[in-house]
Design a protein around this nucleic acid. Structure first.
Length: 92
DNA sequence: CGTATGACGTGCA
DNA sequence: GTGCACGCCATAC
């Protein structure tokens, strides 16, 4: 399954600095397919590698969204990294 | 190869 | 500000 899109997505997500967050749309845009934000979430969902900080990827609305290990874990990790969350939403 | 699904996004009521 | 419907792309079956 070494699709180019998936590889790009992983690479981009892995480059997200600690304490920073990126939206699915932004990742898809960096991957070269600004309309593939859906596919980005799908790929991350089916691959969920512990090496990939996919918990730093959220929705454009600032919502936490989902996580393979549970959205609660995702929120906890973000908070731990210094991300300020307000009502389950990222304070940008 | 065609249909269905999903960690989404935007628009409109 | 909230909720619903449509659209969009890559995978899975």
């Amino acid at each position: 399954m070494t699709s180019l899109f998936q590889e790009k997505v992983f690479k981009i997500v892995a480059k997200i600095p600690k304490g920073e967050t990126m939206t699915y749309k932004r990742v898809a845009l960096f991957a070269g397919k600004p309309r593939a934000y859906r596919a980005v979430g799908n790929i991350l969902n089916k691959n969920a590698d512990p090496k990939i900080p996919c918990h730093r990827v959220m929705r454009s609305d600032g919502k936490i969204g989902g996580y393979n290990r549970g959205a609660e874990i995702k929120e906890s990790l973000l908070k731990k990294e210094g991300v300020v969350i307000r009502n389950r939403k990222i304070v940008h």
